[in-house]
C-alpha cells in the first residue's frame, strides 16, 4: 500500500435544526460522527451504506464543501480547513468530484467545451487554442467525439453526460477523485461502460478513488478496500475481498446477504433479513447504534458504544464481531 493521501481525524458534522425562532425544539442530526478514515495513494476505497447514513456528507467534508463541526481532514499531512488561500487553490486542483446525477451536474446553458474547459480557465491554465486542444484531448480520453464540443448537455444521453462530467473532473490532472454514486442513475449496459472507463483512467493516471455506492456488486468490482457506514459512523473497514467473504460486523453481514444474486438457482439460499426499521439519525439510541436491529445483541451493546478497533488488518466497531 502506498502513502496516505487523505485522512480524516475525529471528523464530525452535526446538523442542528432549531425549528425557527419561536420553537423550543432543537434536533441534532449526527450525519458524520467521529469518522477516522485514511485513503492511500492509487487505491480505490469504497464507501457503502444505506441512504441517510452520511455517505454524501462525508464526501463533501473531504472536499471542503462543508465545514465540519469538529475534527480535521488532512490532505498530504495538512489540514484542509486551515490552509492559506493559495494552498486551498492547489488543493482544489488535486481533488475532484464525480456526481451521481448526470442531468443536474452539468450547467444546461453551457456548451460542452465550456463545461470541460471551465476548470482550465478558472485556474488560468489554458485559454484559446491551448484550451481547445486540452478539451479535445479530454473528450478523446473519455470516449466522446470532439465534433460534439459545441453542443449543449441536453443533446446527450445519460451515459455521455457522465463522460462529460468525468472529463471535467480530469481536466486539472487531479490525484483524488471522489465518485458519489457515479453509475447508479445509468442503465445497466451504460453502467459497465462507465465503470470500465473509470478503471482505465485509474490505470493510466494512477488516480485514487473514493467511491461511494449502495450497489454492492459495483463496489466489489471497483474497490480495493471497503468502508461500511451506519448512522454516521464507520462500522467496518478493510480489504474488499475479506469484507465480502467474511464480514465481521453484523450489519455488514446483513448488507452483503441482502444484495440480490443474479443466479436463480441460489434464490432459496439461507437469508438474513433485518428486523425493524432504520433508527432515526435524529435521536440515535445510546450504546451501539445498531443494537435495536442486531440479532446478537447483548447487554453491553445497549450501554456502551463500541470503538472501531483493529481486528487482524481490518477494523470493526462491534463488542463481539462475527468470526
Amino acid at each position: 500500500m502506498g502513502e496516505i493521501l487523505i485522512q480524516s481525524k475525529n471528523l464530525k458534522k452535526y446538523f442542528v435544526d432549531t425549528g425557527g425562532w419561536l420553537s423550543k425544539r432543537k434536533n441534532t442530526v449526527k450525519a458524520v460522527d467521529n469518522v477516522d478514515l485514511e485513503i492511500y495513494q492509487h487505491e480505490t476505497l469504497a464507501l457503502v451504506g444505506e441512504s441517510g447514513c452520511g455517505k454524501s456528507t462525508l464526501a463533501r467534508l473531504l472536499i471542503n464543501l462543508l465545514e465540519p463541526t469538529d475534527g480535521e481532514v488532512c490532505y498530504k499531512g495538512e489540514n484542509i480547513f486551515s490552509l492559506s488561500a493559495e494552498a486551498t487553490k492547489q488543493f482544489k486542483k488535486q481533488v475532484q468530484f464525480i456526481f451521481q446525477d448526470p442531468y443536474a451536474c452539468l450547467n444546461p446553458r453551457m456548451k460542452v467545451s465550456d463545461i470541460i474547459g471551465e476548470p482550465l480557465t478558472t485556474h488560468k491554465l489554458a485559454n484559446g487554442t491551448s484550451k481547445e486542444n486540452r478539451v479535445e484531448e479530454l473528450m478523446n480520453l473519455v470516449g466522446l467525439r470532439k465534433e460534439f464540443m459545441n453542443r449543449y448537455p441536453h443533446q446527450f444521453s445519460g451515459g455521455q453526460r457522465q463522460r462529460i462530467g468525468i472529463a471535467r473532473a480530469l481536466a486539472l490532472n487531479p490525484e483524488l477523485l471522489i465518485c458519489d454514486e457515479p453509475v447508479s442513475a445509468l442503465d445497466v449496459s451504460i453502467q459497465s461502460q462507465i465503470l470500465n472507463l473509470l478503471k482505465d483512467l485509474q490505470g493510466q493516471f494512477g488516480l485514487t478513488y473514493f467511491f461511494i455506492s449502495h450497489n454492492l456488486s459495483v463496489v466489489r468490482y471497483m474497490a480495493d478496500r471497503v468502508c461500511v457506514m451506519f448512522l454516521g459512523k464507520v462500522v467496518e473497514l478493510g480489504n474488499c475481498k475479506e469484507i465480502f467473504e467474511q464480514p465481521l460486523h453484523p450489519y455488514t453481514a446483513f448488507l452483503m446477504n441482502a444484495a440480490p444474486i443474479p443466479n436463480p438457482r441460489l434464490r432459496n439460499r439461507e437469508r438474513l433479513l433485518l428486523e425493524g426499521e432504520v433508527p432515526s439519525p435524529i435521536n440515535p439510541p445510546p450504546g451501539c447504534s445498531f443494537h435495536a436491529r442486531c440479532p446478537y445483541v447483548q447487554e453491553i451493546c445497549r450501554v456502551e458504544e463500541p470503538k472501531l478497533t483493529d481486528r487482524g488488518g481490518r477494523k470493526c466497531a462491534c463488542h463481539f464481531s462475527l468470526t
Partner: peptide
C-alpha cells in the same frame, strides 16, 4: 444543483458562479 457544487469544487469564484 450539482453543477454549482461542481463549480465550487473546482474553485470557481463566487461572482463567476453567479454570472456564469
Amino acid at each position: 444543483k450539482e453543477f454549482v457544487e461542481a463549480a465550487k469544487i473546482m474553485g470557481v469564484k463566487n461572482w463567476v458562479i453567479l454570472l456564469r
